[in-house]
Design a protein around this nucleic acid. Sequence first.
DNA 1: AGAAACGAGTAAATCGATTTTTCTCGGTTG
DNA 2: CAACCGAGAAAAATCGATTTACTCGTTTCT
Lengths: 360, 360
Amino acid sequence: MAHRQDQQRRASIHDVASRAGVSAATVSKVMAGVTTVKPENAQRVFDAIEQLGYRVDPLASDMRRAKRRIIGAIMPEFESEFFGQMVTQLESMAEQRGYTLVAASSRESEARETEILARMHDWRVAGVVLAPVRNEHGPAAAFMKANGMTGVLIDRVLCDDAFDTVSADSAAASAEVARELIGKGHRHILVVGLGEQAATVRARLDGFRTTALHLAPDVRIDVVLAETDVEPLRAQLRDYFDKGEFDRGEGRGKRPTAVYSLFLKGTLVALSEFRRRGWHCPNDISLVGFDDAEWMQVTWPAIAAVVQPVRQIAGHAMAALFARIEGEEGPPTARLEPCKVLMRESVGSPANGPHSANPR
Amino acid sequence: MAHRQDQQRRASIHDVASRAGVSAATVSKVMAGVTTVKPENAQRVFDAIEQLGYRVDPLASDMRRAKRRIIGAIMPEFESEFFGQMVTQLESMAEQRGYTLVAASSRESEARETEILARMHDWRVAGVVLAPVRNEHGPAAAFMKANGMTGVLIDRVLCDDAFDTVSADSAAASAEVARELIGKGHRHILVVGLGEQAATVRARLDGFRTTALHLAPDVRIDVVLAETDVEPLRAQLRDYFDKGEFDRGEGRGKRPTAVYSLFLKGTLVALSEFRRRGWHCPNDISLVGFDDAEWMQVTWPAIAAVVQPVRQIAGHAMAALFARIEGEEGPPTARLEPCKVLMRESVGSPANGPHSANPR
DNA sequence: AGAAACGAGTAAATCGATTTTTCTCGGTTG
DNA sequence: CAACCGAGAAAAATCGATTTACTCGTTTCT
């Protein structure tokens, strides 16, 4: 049972050394597993460590090396399942290698992002996993480049000439969504998105549009994109539905029969706008959203969604990062991880629905 | 424009000192704002800092002090909105005071919780915000006590004899839920919960039961509690509904007319069980859940929920923690922050619903 | 005038570990 | 018998900032 100092200051390597009757250097060697130590002395050191409850101070230990055993992670936010899972994954992988993960949220601000990065640079982190607010061309990536930091970009990126990137294959997933919707007979689809500048949103939109037009050249695709905030998007969406003549009961001539949201918040906004109008899925309108969430399969109806492979993204990001930390050279890689599209009840065929604006 | 060393090793305080033609001690004093420095020298120091792009190494800076400017935060998980917001808040408050927040997730395991805590102790963090997996009597709190660590307990706690605690006033909120449900005429209510050992779950259950029985002594309250995992709860819940004679169409004699979930996951489980049976809220059954989530107000129907005051909890936790760090003495305080109860559409009156098991 | 006080600054110790260099001692070799 | 070798361990340097203790001048007070 090792409890000596209790709330006093903790034992240092010198305390261990003097108790074992050797020098601090020897203790260090024993802990590092160097073999040129007499077994007898090694045993005395182990005993002393045990008795004093000694543990290495990671701060002091890191002092001398240029790269500290710390990994920084910068996420746009912590509130969503996606980034929550991402941090959890990253944390456990960093831990496995004896690194400490320090996570910070940029709160969707590029200025803050750069600030955090500068602070992490101050800490001389070994590497950074950056999920940029917009895309790979922001000031944060530039900062990393300018300061020779080691890092990996994830999520809202496609590829970069300086850093490895890992993200979901948005384009492929969107193409599949397009196939599904077109296949079900939808010919007028509204795409809503948030974050006009996000690399992923662009890829999702293009992937969807290309495939949809290819499969059904007569399809009409409307787009409502907002820059950053959710409220402008809500306003624009409301406007879109108000200005169109969808509520005049002319049947399905003008009103979209399906909505594809490129972002989780967009799905929420679309849903709440449907509610405001008394529209139900899938009878009045179909809905698919990028990004899955736990609640989507328990609501009525269950919401169809594109599931991002969080584990894979985190795994490959960390693998790439540690490879670079260990000195791997070579051109940056750009990885795209395949998504799963879960077609749930919120998607139906336009033929089945009344597509009227009157609930019940 | 300060970019000299680029990817080389960064400037240290000695580099600044030699460039300014003073000693390192003087540089340190200038940065600390000590007034006994000749303005001329101070200026030279500032210039050198500017030119070299010098920034203090927080690691080295912390080396000498017993308590480092690091705050540890341990949450049961990162995936939920609640803890996500909590971490975001804690982070920004730590930052404001020039501290770095290191967040870790115990993944609902007490063993991991203690491990993380030990690692944070190694880092000699100035303080810890611990959201324990179960309650204030776990091994983690004991570890903190035994090692004289400074800390605050939040969320799944009531009060403690060694640490300040801050949590939502679960009992009061549950009492309000009881008032609402009883007021609407419900006389047979099912309470579902997860985490039998969590301090908060107990408080929520007791608060609800006491008030409900007080207002309507004839009320029947059934309880389905599962220990830790969500799957056993789902099984128990299914069992509960199967064994009862609720599906036999005997009207509202035996079937509960409302469900109160004590935990977010419980709300999801309840909802999915309703779906499986084709029950709709609020016509077939009413639902209120502890813990709010963004999606709850956009689904159809919107789910009634108890909103925890995350900001207040985080704020008071940090205030208490920093007070202790700065040496405040005195007995530990136990704070209960008031919740808001949002009665949304998922709650109705039993008189209005068919309470039949057949949907549509 | 001499002592005390003060202003401005520096060298050196310190924090706790790691790493390089140096030293010691027993044994071997020429 | 001196030179050499090598295992094992101690001493010292290092990492970068802070802090203590101390050194000069200069001014002020008695």
